[in-house]
Design a protein around this nucleic acid. Sequence first.
DNA 1: TCTCACATTTTGTCTGACAATCTGTCAATC
DNA 2: GATTGACAGATTGTCAGACAAAATGTGAGA
Lengths: 225, 225
Amino acid sequence: MDPHDLHIPRETVSLRQQVTDRLREAILYGGFEPGEKLIERELCDRLGISRTLLREALQHLQAEGLIVTVPHKGPSVARITEEEAREIYQVRGALEALAAEGFARHAPDAQVRRLRLHLNYLHTPDAAANILAAKNGFYDILLEGCGNRVVGKILTQLNNRITLLRRYSLSHPGRLPETLRELAEVVSAIEARDPEAAGRLCALHVARAAEVVAKGFAAATQPHT
Amino acid sequence: MDPHDLHIPRETVSLRQQVTDRLREAILYGGFEPGEKLIERELCDRLGISRTLLREALQHLQAEGLIVTVPHKGPSVARITEEEAREIYQVRGALEALAAEGFARHAPDAQVRRLRLHLNYLHTPDAAANILAAKNGFYDILLEGCGNRVVGKILTQLNNRITLLRRYSLSHPGRLPETLRELAEVVSAIEARDPEAAGRLCALHVARAAEVVAKGFAAATQPHT
DNA sequence: TCTCACATTTTGTCTGACAATCTGTCAATC
DNA sequence: GATTGACAGATTGTCAGACAAAATGTGAGA
């Protein structure tokens, strides 16, 4: 981009960094259950690293809210309570609105087009096969173009925590069409360069998603009604 | 409260936790400069702990954004760029609005009164002596009563990062009266149980504070204009 | 003054250790 | 048979020391 930027990206990714990323990935998509106990020695063996390093990585993930540690009982995958989920969705609503607003205001036209393209892609059966990753792709574009990396980072972390609830939220797969319709409205507002509308629609979208999750919780707690 | 809740609060605070807190405190209020290099062995000696433990604490603080680590150069106190500060204030605006809104909606009357009392306290010379701590007290009440602990945690972290800029923002000490006026308006809206107004006023307050910091930045970069 | 080789410092990671605590088991008791 | 208690094993919390790799500082030589 900037011809003056001769910065060479330092490709040295410390082992610790890799461990942290791997572990995060494993917790989010690798079949660990919320509440599951993480036994250090076992993880060390599976990752092929020392306990020192593992514990550093665990500290990082703890700060991200993905694991919790009880003294002398050790780390376990975080449990998201219903209330906490509601709170997270509330924050997410406010911040995604901010992101959409920023995107409508600052993103270059090319990026707006990319967003539209990705939305189209979301309609394909290809995307439906791995809808989680596909939706994340959409958000990645949104966060990248909103001109506020801080909001991006926070939303990513919140999103990770919500991913722990996959169990509940994916129990309503029928919502996809609505989701796409809502996102389409957001994209339209962005194309119209109407930040206020984009923000409002985005917040609305999140609020709807929150409702679905709340229902998922209710269904999980009282399964036979 | 609940007579069935016989839970005994586990007072065991792990040494690591204490180290993390101490270190955070030291970075925020203990005279470390943004960008200052943190030498592990030295900190170990000063804290009287092993390197193992120190590095775990550092990982935690790194995840909180208070320190950054360059491979093979080690940790240093994070530097907040002007752009990042702007971004943080933007997020803070959105989230504090959310908090004020929630407070106006959910906080019991007693807590609203506590907020008003603390606002009055902020006018005393006693509070002015340590205005940073006094203002934090105000926010603590706000965050406690807003009914959303997630927002509280995020705002605390953002606030910590902003504290690293103390240098710039405190260069405008004359703003205190305005600050108090703005906060008074927020409290009034809360007392009137008008969430929408409380949120809007709170966001406005943050936006004003952001301007001041931006000016502080400008003054620091071009000192002689 | 600049440059380059070298010594020193600091980081990244590993290993092994040990006390404190938790957990599971199994016998003794009611 | 259910409960209790004691004990052994597993796991965590923390330390000390080690060593290679990289960064930094230093002094000799151009």
